[in-house]
């Protein structure tokens, strides 16, 4: 479960480093060094968390610069922690413009690792994720865009995806149907449609040579279609809406790899199949629809489906070591 840490950023309060006086004199002054460096390193805001009465509340992690700095007066860009995993912290913030929401993924240093190794691993993982996302964008796979990355500091800024996860959409299907009785027809047609979309999305991803590595229904988002109703949850009885409208967008490429091997693709599908079975046992019988759509999504998919049968027999690990 994500731990909810409340973070207070002092907004309009004492700006720690507003335009320093040097800024002005240096930019105007004609010293030779003037155009070389008119920047002073911003002091890192050490207390971006506020201490409570019991003075034992210590921030577990503080964000790397420039996200540590307090915002300047008049600017409201708060940064909220929304998820914490074993490897990374996920924040909601804004990037480039106050109207552009983004997900900031930060991999804090792990103190139990040697600092040099730690830096190397963090750097490699940040870059692997960013490169896969950029590659998917080039190939037209529906993934969030990379807006910025700091591989030395361990952060990556990713476009914010609106909408709900497939997991929540399936969980919310019953409620949705109760609220939208008029459009309730056709048995499990909506679910079959969803499965089809998932199969196509995963097929497209594999086609461009990317393995997700952690396919679960929480890592599949339903992004509302832009032309349609904003917000996605407009109870309209007229259209043939389903609780699963929207485009399937894949998120969290933290374990992704670039590979075109049938084995890796089959394992990717197997992980999804198992995740489906344990998270949504009531709709597990429809999972073959995912595979059916996958099988038709690209050349070579059929071979992967055959491989999947081997993987099912033996499990995810091919080598019996480790």
């Amino acid at each position: 479960m994500p731990r909810a840490l409340s973070i207070t950023t002092h907004n309009a309060s004492l700006g720690e480093a507003p335009l320093t006086p040097e800024w002005h004199s240096r930019t105007v002054a004609s010293e030779t060094a003037a155009h070389k460096m008119s920047f002073t390193a911003v002091p890192t805001a050490s207390n971006s968390y506020q201490l409570n009465d019991s003075n034992e509340v210590q921030p577990l992690h503080s964000l790397p610069p420039p996200f540590t700095t307090t915002s300047s007066p008049g600017q409201t860009s708060s940064t909220k922690l929304i998820r914490q995993g074993a490897e990374a912290l996920l924040y909601y913030t804004h990037f480039l413009s106050p109207s552009l929401p983004c997900a900031l993924k930060y991999r804090p240093p792990k103190s139990y690792r040697h600092p040099i190794l730690d830096k190397r691993l963090t750097r490699a993982r940040i870059l692997a994720e960013a490169r896969v996302l950029v590659r998917c964008k080039r190939e037209g796979v529906s993934v969030p865009a990379v807006l910025g990355a700091g591989w030395e500091e361990g952060w990556i800024a990713i476009e914010w995806v609106n909408g709900s996860t497939v997991r929540d959409a399936i969980f919310g299907r019953k409620t949705w149907r109760q609220e939208n009785q008029a459009s309730y027809e056709g048995g499990e047609k909506d679910l079959v449609g969803l499965m089809h979309k998932i199969g196509c999305a995963v097929g497209k991803l594999h086609q461009v040579g990317v393995i997700h590595g952690d396919l679960t229904t929480s890592n599949l988002m339903l992004r509302p279609t832009v032309s349609g109703a904003e917000g996605g949850e407009e109870p309209s009885a007229t259209s043939a809406a389903t609780p699963f409208d929207g485009t399937i967008t894949l998120i969290d490429f933290g374990l992704a790899a670039q590979s075109s091997q049938e084995e890796d693709r089959a394992v990717d599908l197997y992980v999804l199949e198992r995740a489906f079975g344990s998270t949504h046992p009531e709709v597990e019988h429809l999972f073959p629809e995912v595979l059916k759509a996958y099988g038709e999504s690209y050349k070579g998919a059929k071979v992967v489906l055959r491989k999947l049968e081997d993987v099912r027999m033996r499990g995810r690990k091919k080598s019996m070591i480790g």
């Binding site: 960013a130 490169r131 996302l133 950029v134 964008k137 080039r138 865009a145 990379v146 807006l147 910025g148």
Partner: peptide, 15 residues
């Protein structure tokens, strides 16, 4: 999509 790819390439330059 192209714009997102371009911004991503800029962000990853020098990596």
């Amino acid at each position: 999509e192209a714009e997102a790819f371009i911004i991503g390439s800029m962000a990853l330059k020098g990596s």
